[in-house]
Amino acid sequence: MTKIEQLVNDLTGKYGKERKSLMPILQGIVKEKRYVDNTDMVHIARALDISAADVYGVASFYSFIENNEMGKYVIRICKSITCEMKGKHKILKALEEELRIKLGETTHNKRFTLLETNCLGLCDVGPAMLINEEPYTKLTPEKVHEILVDYRNEVK
């Protein structure tokens, strides 16, 4: 059994093999490895006995279920209205410069992926972003630098 088969096995053990378990299983894999690739989807399809196309259709619908390889830390910066008003562009630029990647890319060492997302429900404390599940608010370029230093040093 490969690692991913083991994981799918554990997840079906936990959530069951009905169709309604599909989302928790996809999320379980995201939690473990940040994205769900094609091989993973075939394993899920087999475990739930549904078509792989169906798994793909569902996974691609949700923006927190990524198909492409993601870094260890997925940064999602809010691009919705109030964050934009509060200077999201500056923050994005700071992140791009700090990480030396463009939006949508992953650093060479596979540590960080930089994405945009819609409103995080942190509009009163924007600009905001998530790193994996952790929210960061009232961002400034300096704060971004500090946060990334912490992640680089694995303080987090």
Binding site: N38, M41, I50, S51, A52, A53, D54, V55, Y56, G57, S60, F61, N67
Partner: peptide, 25 residues
């Protein structure tokens, strides 16, 4: 179920699994 609806919004389309060519699905 060789075909599915994939993605959402303006990206929504009809796909095979992972948009693989028809002869591979």
């Amino acid at each position: 179920n060789a075909l599915t609806v994939s993605h959402k919004g303006d990206e929504m389309k009809i796909s095979t699994f992972a948009d693989l060519p028809f002869n591979e699905v």
